[in-house]
Nucleic acid binder design. Structure first.
Lengths: 413, 413
DNA sequence: CAGGCTTTGTTTATCTGCGGCACAAAGTGA
DNA sequence: TCACTTTGTGCCGCAGATAAACAAAGCCTG
């Protein structure tokens, strides 16, 4: 008798093979954009016959659609063009943030098809009320999607806080504590759409969703599959993507970079500890250091950017110092995780030009063995195309792409 | 045309299914220790018939062996006992460290069967010489293994440094830089055993190997599948294990916790930066702070332990301060990585009793949302059963367990 | 102690998904 | 027009899992 604990993955059989290859072919079509059966066969290593059979099934369930013939210009019979269907299954993403709620529907191909944003101050509002509001927007978005023949396969909700097991453990910026997000949201959504079938609801941290958006939809960062993502909002959020997979940690709380320590004897943080990064590179601290009214919120960052652009010394000094301290912590994270790149999102994007040099300097100094300087420029601004709502929708899309058979079975019932 | 870059995993077919289930059954036998065909069938979800066929193949290639009948005492026909073979394929692990070289042969069941340790000061010695020495010990161990009918399936070499792509990029404590470890070692080993077939050689960081040893062989930490592993040697090494998998990072350098920052203005580290953890909680710093001759090396830690046990204030204060600073960095890593536990290995094990309270205090204070205090005691001393050499051998064993078919094919040629 | 019950492990037939091959379809080029 | 090339689709065979039946080898009970 030894350790009974190593969890064994499930057995494999014909059905497993079919599921796997079905997803493989679908993702091949997805990645290539336009493909033929023969091309896919060559790409994934299956026989043309096998691909034919798989594609037939994918067509049947509406995951892909046939276009015209491929007028290649080269010799041989032209193939029939295959594309990911622009109607059918879709992802519904919801981002609940401090001062807005964003909803977004993404189709299987990854294009943004519906977007609803509403600016509301959610601070201090009862969680159930906020969730009901978000569900309302989601229902509206689902309606618009239906007009385009898009059917959400699920909803993914992103929130600024510690999320695990379907509920928010705490979200200081919203003032939430122990809120059963998935349950409440599902309930509210069902009440709004009694005729429809219940959508599976999942949830995650907002920074995680934004990082995934960067991974899937980010422009200019295509080759990067491992990165540390930072988002400078009220707090400092973080997420880790490693080889194309989000690192969630043992309980789902990974990436909380905002409370890593800059100076153990530093200013008191609202988390109770001293010298957290948030107290140096968070928005409030940054604005305060630059002499801007911190209550201004998001616009304050634009004001800071404006002053920096004008070359005001106080602004530049404040950003430089925050950058240095950000760099200290980020280099620690880089040493620990060895990513390909670091992406600065959120408010940091606005200040990138003045922030980056200071961060770079610390990275070059502190990342062991000069690894940082060798790999070329790896500190980047996050793409504006990636927002948390879109990333959240992407999570649903990804689930469908990774097991289309499961979705088809669910839809059949 | 979109991103051609999402790497697609290989296709699945009959062979894949067979390989997968073969490994599944083998690992089931491994985990349970003693099993019957029917028991395994129930455990992994396959039919008894399928398991029979798979077991037949495993018997044929010598991965498992049949024992007697299971005299259960309950009704029904007794089953034939299956065990992982105690002869046949094995793992050969080599640990090259600053002042010793350890070699270890582990059988498929995970038991230590051969062990060779030699104390030598490797500092300043030419890499090729050290590797030849290690290869000599490995050859000797392989000889002893052969007498017990154990045949190494490969060699895994663990070194204290940054290891990637088969070579050491830098190992400051050894004074190595850009050494093609795998090539040199394989060459030396082949020269020593001309009659044998070449063993596949792989390599990794020493802390990684030690962490894996903790995962696979550690006593008292069976349930823990995600942890941060620290080893206090000359430097401070680290490794991350997430859900039973080692987290290697994009280039294989993850876990370098020794150069995370305690105080950006702190003492200069040999890495060129200021205030690295190593300068506070490394052995040299720890001994210096306690007023012990730092050149004493490993024995110095025992001396420090002795003084702490006697209650000498200087020793206790030095350990306490190091613990506090270790705690600051570790809590940052915990925030970032969200593990189940933190394991202290190496020299820290010796000082655990006095180190732990200080580390715990910082963790309780700094890990966001009091997550640390909720989960019960999660700061643990690493098990003495897990050393890097054994972990390295385990890597080879693991490879065989995870694809026995591949090993059988290789062995057949 | 004989017969029933239970559990194990093997045997046989069946099913299904992929590989291989041949072949019709649909283009280009001389 | 004919040779050549490439695509997509039948058709057959193979292999591996399932399902069901069966022999084997122990308990339990009257």
């Amino acid at each position: 008798m030894k350790n009974h604990l190593t969890p064994l993955e499930p057995k494999a059989d014909k059905a497993t093979v079919r599921r796997h290859n079905l997803s493989l072919v679908l993702r091949a079509v997805h990645d290539v954009g336009e493909a033929t059966r023969a091309g896919i066969a060559a790409h994934v290593g299956l026989t043309r016959a096998a691909v034919s059979s798989l594609v037939e099934q994918l067509l049947e369930h509406g995951f892909v659609s046939e276009g015209g013939k491929t007028s290649s210009g080269q010799a041989g019979r032209p193939g029939t063009v295959l594309k990911v269907a622009r109607s059918g299954p879709a992802g519904l993403g919801v981002e609940i943030n401090i001062d807005y709620i964003a909803v977004c529907v993404v189709d299987l191909a990854g294009t943004d098809r519906v977007r609803v944003v509403e600016h509301v101050d959610n601070r201090g509002v009862a969680p159930s009320e906020v969730l009901a509001h978000a569900a309302g927007l989601a229902a509206r978005a689902a309606g618009s999607a239906a007009e385009q023949d898009l059917l959400p396969a699920g909803v993914h909700v992103a929130l600024p806080g510690l999320v695990t097991g379907g509920s928010v453990r705490q979200a200081p910026n919203l003032g939430w504590q122990r809120v059963a997000v998935e349950g409440l949201f599902a309930q509210a959504l069902l009440a709004l759409r009694p005729a429809h079938r219940a959508l599976p609801v999942s949830s995650d941290n907002e920074a995680n969703a934004a990082a995934l958006a960067e991974l899937w939809f980010g422009a200019g960062t295509e080759g990067v599959r491992s990165f540390l993502y930072l988002t400078g909002e009220i707090g400092v959020g973080g997420a880790l993507v490693l080889k194309g997979d989000l690192l969630r940690g043992a309980h789902g709380f990974a990436g909380e970079i905002g409370h890593m320590v800059v100076d153990p004897e530093g200013p008191l943080c609202r988390c109770g500890a001293r010298g957290c990064l948030e107290q140096y590179a968070g928005q409030a601290a940054l604005l305060r250091a630059a002499g801007i009214d911190a209550d201004a919120g998001v616009p304050g960052v634009f004001e800071l950017g404006r002053r920096a652009r004008r070359g005001e010394p106080a602004a530049l000094a404040a950003i430089e110092r925050a950058g240095r301290q950000l760099g200290v912590v980020v280099s620690g994270a880089v040493n620990l995780f060895d990513p390909d790149a670091v992406m600065l999102g959120g408010a940091y994007r606005e200040l990138m030009d003045w922030l980056a040099p200071a961060v770079e300097r610390e990275l070059a100094l502190r990342v062991v063995s000069g690894l940082w300087t060798e790999g070329g420029k790896r500190l980047r601004a996050a793409s504006p195309l990636g927002d948390a709502a879109r990333g959240a929708a992407g999570v649903i899309v990804r689930e469908v792409l990774e097991d289309p058979a499961a979705y088809a079975e669910r839809a059949a019932r």
